[in-house]
Write a protein that binds this DNA or RNA. Structure first.
Lengths: 210, 210
DNA sequence: ACCCGTCTGGACTTGCCGGTCCATTTTTCG
DNA sequence: CGAAAAATGGACCGGCAAGTCCAGACGGGT
């Protein structure tokens, strides 16, 4: 599914640019106004395109466009955590990553594009679920990788189950973000991150104290 | 805001029954088919009511009805965790509660009524945010209360910040549920719960091991 | 029996929004 | 340059679903 050109990938240079403009513009307006209330006309006017272009590049209609936006947003999620997420091999880097995550989602304010997107397109399209599933798997993998790096550096006990702990931390992040969206308070996200890292710290090879 | 009759609370006995029937029926159909695709006609046919009744009991239209359903669902969330959530004073009760939570959300399948609801009605209505905020506060409070009970029973170190740990655990639950919805895998939820409880166990007054 | 407020049924209106269609312009390529 | 393919503009359609309205049924209080 990754080597197929998906039909609309490369007709011409201009075409590709327009398509990209549509996806990015759609992502913006969706982030600002929410999926539920955004119409094709909103996207059209924001991106300076015409109805026919929308359907030219996304023959599947609105659903296909939303799916493309979801993929676009999903790609950004992990990118925005770099370079920290890629090198979680010391306590400092974990802390930096933690701050980057908090900052990213606090800035994003109260609109979770992805969350809303796959709640809208949701369980109908199998494609949507695949996007989320893959994103989560990669995310969890990177966290687990970082934990193993700590273990390799002798900072964390090898007894710790990195995959399981990474899953728990990831769940905490997701929930923290969700609660930031719905309550406007980032305290839950911070608590989840700090608590997760504390959990690692508590599993040092040499317990700091009794 | 809690002592005001909200105008439509008690016109007559029959009226109250009909109103309740509408809310419950709407909750059912929303859970089954999702907010995005559910129309007033779906609710109408499910509850055996007419259009005029819907607007008679919810003059504010669909939004007001959805809000009422959100409140209804929010009330169920904590109820469904009883009696365990109310008496988290031993390791066994924590475990029982943990199992109850997993079971509840695994059964619920892949439709998060509440989540979808306040993503739909969402940030527009201030009322929606209030419902979620209050639910989360109560939930967190109960968890923190349980943690303090463990402390009082000498099972957990008094040094532990119950409120913060409860916030982190709650975030983990929320994220775990969200990921259960979107990926279909309850592993994240279980990991979050177990990891959170482990975190408590690691803070026993007498460290189990070195 | 009566009256009045509540409750109910369902036809009707209205506006919106996804999707279609064709005419026109621009680009590519031999 | 010229033709074919791609890209673009925008009018138009059709359906659907929210919301309106009025006519009538019920039911309790005097």
């Amino acid at each position: 599914m990754s080597d197929a050109p998906t039909a609309k990938d490369a007709p011409t240079a201009k075409g590709r640019a327009t398509r990209a403009r549509i996806v990015e513009g759609a992502a913006e307006v969706l982030r600002e106004r929410g999926v539920a209330v955004t119409t094709l006309d909103d996207i059209r006017s924001r991106t300076g395109t015409s109805k026919s272009q929308l359907f030219h590049y996304f023959p599947g209609g609105k659903d296909e466009l939303l799916l493309a936006v979801a993929q676009f947003e999903a790609d950004r999620v992990l990118e925005d955590q770099q370079p920290h997420l890629g090198s979680l091999d010391s306590w400092e880097s974990w802390q930096q990553w933690r701050d980057a995550v908090v900052e990213r989602y606090e800035r994003q304010g109260d609109h979770c594009s992805l969350g809303a997107l796959f709640l809208q397109v949701g369980r109908l399209r199998p494609g949507a679920r695949a996007i989320v599933t893959q994103l989560m798997r990669q995310w969890q993998e990177q966290l687990a990788h970082g934990m193993r790096a700590l273990q390799d550096n002798g900072l964390v006990s090898p007894a710790l189950d990195a995959d399981r702990t990474a899953a728990a931390l990831l769940a905490g992040i997701q929930g923290g973000v969700a609660m930031l969206m719905s309550t406007g308070d980032s305290m839950y996200l911070k608590a989840a991150l700090d608590s997760g890292i504390d959990h690692l710290r508590a599993a040092t090879v040499e317990p700091v104290r009794a």
